[in-house]
Design a protein around this nucleic acid. Structure first.
Lengths: 214, 214
DNA sequence: ACATTATGTGAGCGGTAGCTCATATTGTGT
DNA sequence: ACACAATATGAGCTACCGCTCACATAATGT
């Protein structure tokens, strides 16, 4: 076993209990960010809330920033998974179907952990390693651009890059604002209308540009 | 003069030099927020940069939060002035003219002090008195809703409140993102196309809903 | 069973943050 | 000229922050 163990990476970089420690720390960080905000989320408090010593915290995270960055990464992963899946699913669909599906998915993505999402967006300063919250947009923009380019005949916008930017920024802003600030718009009965509106907004934009009237 | 001075508010709540002190503090705070971020903007540093003693700072602002809130208020006032003026100006205009004008104005508003705007949005935690950055949207939404309601015959959306929310959120997000993250889209020659795109996006949305094709 | 490594502990260090207060300086009305 | 209010000063207090380190305990390989 000696030779194989040297060539192969170790089965797990850590024993099980260390994974538990890390998990507890991430959960506690998220909880405290939501409940108390970034400023008041001291490392000592996080460690205590996680039921872990402050020393252990610094064994896995070299700084407070790294700790919060890990929480952000994890949260982004969860949201991106939904988005990536959806984008793959609609690659062959017509524009309207695709847009509607993506709008729905983005709403769901913002509902994965809306309180944490809000805390991350509103509390955590976008500096250094912490500016990744916006990296979603960049990756999604690229995927959407590819989709639009493949369907160039079906859409009427001159520059797919601008169109992708417009679509992604708009959907992100509307779904975020709706989930965070206007949950009433997403209540059972009204939700469909909201999705319809956003879908129409984008589909009409993507179709032929309406000729200027004299 | 004794009687009049008791009934009327004092001509100025402060002597001139105190106004200068307050101004210096606000300017310094803005400068440091931009250059160093919220975390590193300590009250001592702000006072020093303003050329004012720390004691004076606390004579006018009871806390760091209040100081930053004052900077936010002042910045919002500057942006809102543009927006309010524009809304008043286009109240009687047709939808397309109005939307185009408002898009332009929102770009200008974000250009009033883009670095400060970015710092306020990205660095300052939205807690307590500090959550006012978003109050712009609320006031503007209401004004837009009124406009849309007055032109109900010209537009095809069922719920003016939803439409106002969609329009305001979209314009704010697109202009903000463009100014802050994609200044290339606003370069001399391309800017018009961007304005056209955003205008078209909204105007088509506001017009008659396109009947579903079978 | 034992040596070795992985993991966990928490008292406490250096530093800085926000903020106070006793005192000094400047402006104002008479 | 003088009294009194308005304004300005900055040394220094408390509190907590992020973080380290010398040591203890648990798991692993042989």
């Amino acid at each position: 076993m000696s030779e194989r163990s040297r060539t192969n990476p170790r089965k797990s970089a850590s024993q099980q209990r260390s994974r538990l420690t890390v998990d507890a720390l991430l959960e506690a960080t998220a909880r405290i960010l939501v409940k108390e905000g970034y400023d008041r989320a001291s490392t000592n408090k996080v460690a205590q809330a996680a039921g872990v010593s402050i020393g252990s915290l610094y064994q896995y995270f070299p700084s407070k920033e790294a700790l919060v960055a890990a929480v952000i990464d994890r949260h982004i992963q969860e949201m991106m998974e939904l988005a990536r899946d959806a984008l793959a699913r609609v690659r062959e669909c017509a524009v309207e179907t695709a847009v509607r599906e993506l709008v729905k998915v983005m709403i769901d993505a913002h509902r994965v952990n809306p309180k944490l999402h809000r805390a991350l967006v509103e509390q955590v300063p976008r500096v250094g390693r912490l500016e990744n919250i916006e990296s979603i947009d960049r990756e999604v923009s690229e995927l959407v651009r590819q989709y639009l380019e493949a369907r160039r005949d079906e859409i009427g916008v001159a520059d797919p890059a601008i169109a992708a930017f417009v679509c992604v920024t708009t959907v992100e802003a509307l779904t975020h604002a709706a989930v965070v600030h206007r949950p009433d718009l997403l209540a059972e009965e009204r939700a469909d209308r909201f999705v319809d509106d956003v879908t129409r907004l984008l589909v009409q934009y993507l179709r032929e540009p309406q000729p200027q009237r004299p």
